[in-house]
Design a protein around this nucleic acid. Structure first.
Lengths: 195, 195
DNA sequence: CGAATGACAGATTTCAATATCTGTCATTCG
DNA sequence: CGAATGACAGATATTGAAATCTGTCATTCG
């Protein structure tokens, strides 16, 4: 029993992740989370207004972990924009593929969560697109890229590389052609950015 | 009763489309198809070995209709490759969007069918990619495009434009940004193809 | 007094019985 | 004789009753 510790939102989120990992998204209940913490489910509702809010918080945490890894690459204004862009896209693809491959069930769980949290995902996509826009803007400023609209181009880059980060395509990431396909797509897009 | 006509595979396919349209993919049964034709379900099994084979045939028909519309554009070797490519992609996007918008239920039905017919879809994708490769090869030959591998580039073009033809993205096609996003993506890709 | 509880109503899920469907085949029909 | 039938076994889907869950709140506890 860790019942000596006070009940915080943080502890609830950790327990919820564990319950989701164990039971999957369809069978994970608030009662399960409370049981895992050794408290009544009413106490969980003191910290999260609804089950949906609890799931949203867990989803946001997970999405934020992805953003952080990429943030560094986007912010590194010293490196040349083209290689930063390639690196950023490759890092995103590799990270997603590793997660999907290492623990497919957990990945599927988060896929379900993301599908029911349209708003949180939209924010996450906006964050990632913003990072891309920063890279594009740097390239336009330095003359490494053609004179494009950074925001619109960032959207286009994110959308055209969807096959390499959208979880719906996870099964394709394991095929032998995946790496070649990724290189071909990125090559074409990067060429399109050059002056 | 149209029982005077002989029972052909063609008539069964038409009845199946009608039953799918009426009942949806989850509730459409072989018995329903037989009833619609005024025959016993055993007779349907004389023409299609299994329910899955019947659904596959319906799916193939539907996919083939899409391919035909695009084939003409791909084959028109007189027009310049860049505008042919833009036209091909725009035609595909517009056709899909119209289908999804006009009759969302029917579109959802075919989406379910396509999801269960991996093989038929793979063939369809191969057909479309082949058409793209033809356009790319023409561009490479005429010097309108850079000296790229037509097959690999065709795959890249198809995959990067997935958001504008993959049914999974159908909801996005109705958003106000859809057209601008399409133009931005195609613009970037076409620029990437230029010498 | 603020945090935690647990009983509660209404919504949702589970489960087992019941009905329907798939695919086969011996038989009938034209 | 070949095409169509319908009874059948096993698989799948539907249904409704019982169990569980969500979210609230008056009450208890420290």
């Amino acid at each position: 029993m860790a019942a000596t510790e006070t009940l915080t939102a943080e502890r609830i989120l950790e327990a919820t992740e564990e319950v989701l990992r164990r039971h999957g998204p369809a069978k994970a209940t608030v009662v399960d989370v409370a049981r895992a913490l050794g408290v009544s489910h009413g106490s969980v509702y003191r910290h999260f207004r609804t089950k949906a809010a609890l799931r949203e918080a867990v989803t946001k945490r997970w999405l934020d972990r992805t953003s952080e890894a990429l943030c560094g690459i986007a912010a590194d204004e010293d490196r040349d924009p083209e290689s930063r862009l390639r690196d950023w896209l490759a890092t995103l693809f590799t990270a997603k593929r590793r997660k999907a491959g290492d623990d497919p069930e957990l990945f599927a769980t988060y896929r379900v969560l993301a599908a029911e949290q349209g708003e949180a995902v939209a924010e996450h996509v906006a964050e990632l697109t913003g990072q891309l826009a920063r890279i594009v803007a740097a390239g336009v400023a330095s003359g490494a890229f053609a004179d494009v609209e950074p925001a619109a181009t960032a959207r286009a880059l994110f959308q055209t590389t969807g096959r390499f980060h959208d979880p719906a395509y996870a099964p394709e990431w394991e095929t032998p052609e995946a790496d070649a396909d990724f290189e071909a797509a990125v090559g074409l897009l990067v060429r399109g950015l050059r002056p």
